[in-house]
Design a protein around this nucleic acid. Structure first.
Length: 430
DNA sequence: GAGCATGATTCCGC
DNA sequence: GCGGAATCATGCTC
C-alpha cells in the first residue's frame, strides 16, 4: 500500500471536508495560497500533504452518508481538486497490482475449437472468405459424389444450389456487418461512459481495454451463433440438394429405347464396356453410373422374370432386325463392343449372334422374305435356323444354373416352337 | 390409394 | 472395383 494514502485521518475529519470544498484550486472564493492543501510545492512533502490526502479519502468515504446536494458539491470539489490526478493514478496503480479487476484477457480467450470448426466449414462451403463462385466447388464436389457426368438436370440443380448458397452468403455477411457495426457502436458508447466515469473514479487504461475485450467477446459469442445458424442453413441446403439428386426420375423414352436395344442385342453378354457405357450415357443424356445402374437392374429383373420381358425382347429384336435389314446397322450402332462379349459385342446386330429371331411379327405379320434373307446372311448359319415361322419369335438366352449368362449359340438352346411365349429354360424363371 | 414400374442405394462376394 | 441381390423410394397407371 502506498504510504501516502495510509496517512491517519485528521482528527475530527470534518474540518478537512470543509477545507476541501473551499480548497478548490482556482475556484471561486479561493484565497490565494490559503486553501492550497499541498502548498505551492505541488507535492506531498510533509505531514500536511498526508493530512490532505487523508482528508480527501475521508471525504470520499463519507460522501455516501451525505445529502445529494452536499454530495454533489463535494463531488465537484473532488473533481476539481488538483490532487485528483495523482490520487487517481495511485488508485489505478493499486487496481493493477491487485489484479482483481484486470485479468489477462489472453488467458480468457483461448481459440475456441468450435469457432474454428465453424469458420473452417464456412470457408469450405464458400460462405465465409472471398467469394469463389458461390460454392460452385461444393456443388461440383456433390456432383462428383453422385458418380459420373453432369446431366442437364444436374446443372439446373447446381445453379439452384449456387443461388441459394449465395443468398445464405449474402445474409451471413450482412448480419455479420450489422453485428460488427453494433459492436463498434457499443464499444464507443462504453468507452465514452468509461471516460465519463474516469472523472469520478479511477479507470485505468488496461481496465478500458479489458472492457473492450469483454464487449468483443460478447459480440463474438453472438457471431458464433450466427455462424452456427449459417452452418445449419448450409447443411439443410446441402441435404436438400443431395435429396433432390437422389430423387428418381424416369429416363426418357428414347433413352430407355437406346438402352434396351443395346441390352437385347447383347443378350448373350449384356455387360457394356466402359466405352460402351460412356457412349450410351452420351446418347441417353444420363451418367455412366446411371447406365451401370440400368444394366444392373435390367440384368437382374430380366433374369428374374424372363417371361415378362419376352414381348419387350421381341420388339427390340424386330427393331434391330429391321434396321439391320435396311442398312446393316441399328440406330445405335456406335458404342464400342464390350470386350467380354463373345459375340463380338458390337452394337449392330450383324455378327453379334445375340438375336434369335422368328420372323413373324408380334401381330402375326410376316416380314418380307428379303429381310429374312438378309438377316440370315447377317447372322450367319445356325443363328435362328428353323425357328422362323414358329410360335416363338424370340428366344432369350439361357441363364446358367449358377445364375450367370450363357450365350446360346446353337439352335438347341432356342425355345422350342411348341412352347408357349414366356416359356424359358431358366432356373431363375418364375 | 393400391399396385406395379423403375432408378438408386446398400450390402456382400468375388 | 464390379456385379448380383435385396431393398428403398419415387413415379406412374388405374
Amino acid at each position: 500500500m502506498d504510504e501516502r494514502l495510509l496517512g491517519p485521518p485528521p482528527p475530527g475529519g470534518g474540518r478537512g471536508g470543509l477545507g476541501l470544498v473551499g480548497a478548490e484550486p482556482g475556484g471561486p472564493g479561493e484565497p490565494p495560497g490559503g486553501g492550497d492543501p499541498g502548498g505551492g510545492s505541488g507535492g506531498v512533502p510533509g505531514g500536511r500533504g498526508k493530512q490532505d490526502i487523508g482528508d480527501i479519502l475521508q471525504q470520499i468515504m463519507t460522501i455516501t452518508d451525505q445529502s445529494l446536494d452536499e454530495a454533489q458539491a463535494k463531488k465537484h470539489a473532488l473533481n476539481c481538486h488538483r490532487m485528483k490526478p495523482a490520487l487517481f493514478s495511485v488508485l489505478c496503480e493499486i487496481k493493477e497490482k491487485t489484479g482483481l479487476s484486470i485479468r489477462s484477457s489472453q488467458e480468457e480467450e483461448p481459440v475456441d475449437p468450435q469457432l474454428m470448426r465453424l469458420d473452417n466449414m464456412l470457408l469450405a462451403e464458400g460462405v465465409a472468405g472471398p467469394e469463389k463462385g458461390g460454392g460452385s466447388a461444393a456443388a461440383a464436389a456433390a456432383a462428383a459424389a453422385s458418380g459420373g457426368g453432369v446431366s442437364p438436370d444436374n446443372s439446373i440443380e447446381h445453379s439452384d444450389y449456387r443461388s441459394k448458397l449465395a443468398q445464405i452468403r449474402h445474409i451471413y455477411h450482412s448480419e455479420l456487418e450489422k453485428y460488427e457495426q453494433a459492436c463498434n457502436e457499443f464499444t464507443t458508447h462504453v468507452m465514452n461512459l468509461l471516460r465519463e466515469q474516469s472523472r469520478t473514479r479511477p479507470v485505468a487504461p488496461k481496465e478500458m481495454e479489458r472492457m473492450v475485450s469483454i464487449i468483443h467477446r460478447k459480440f463474438s459469442a453472438i457471431q458464433m451463433q450466427l455462424k452456427q445458424s449459417t452452418c445449419e442453413a448450409v447443411m439443410i441446403l446441402r441435404s436438400r440438394f443431395l435429396d433432390a439428386r437422389r430423387k428418381r426420375r424416369n429416363f426418357s423414352k428414347q433413352a430407355t429405347e437406346v438402352l434396351n436395344e443395346y441390352f437385347y442385342s447383347h443378350l448373350s453378354s449384356p455387360y457394356p464396356s466402359e466405352e460402351a457405357k460412356e457412349e450410351l450415357a452420351k446418347k441417353c443424356g444420363i451418367t455412366v453410373s446411371q447406365v451401370s445402374n440400368w444394366f444392373g437392374n435390367k440384368r437382374i429383373r430380366y433374369k428374374k422374370n424372363i417371361g415378362k420381358f419376352q414381348e419387350e425382347a421381341n420388339i427390340y429384336a424386330v427393331k434391330t432386325a429391321v434396321s439391320v435389314a435396311q442398312g446393316g446397322h441399328s440406330r445405335t450402332s456406335s458404342p464400342t463392343p464390350p470386350s467380354s462379349a463373345g459375340s463380338g459385342g458390337s452394337f449392330n446386330l450383324s455378327g453379334s449372334g445375340d438375336m434369335f429371331l422368328g420372323m413373324p411379327g408380334l401381330n402375326g405379320d410376316s416380314y418380307p422374305a428379303s429381310q429374312v434373307e438378309s438377316l440370315r446372311h447377317s447372322m450367319g448359319p445356325g443363328s435362328y435356323g428353323d425357328n422362323i415361322g414358329g410360335g416363338q419369335i424370340y428366344s432369350p438366352r439361357e441363364i446358367r444354373a449358377n445364375g450367370g449368362w450363357q450365350e446360346a449359340v446353337t439352335p438347341s438352346s432356342v425355345t422350342s416352337p411348341t412352347e408357349g411365349p414366356g416359356s424359358v429354360h431358366s432356373d431363375t424363371s418364375n
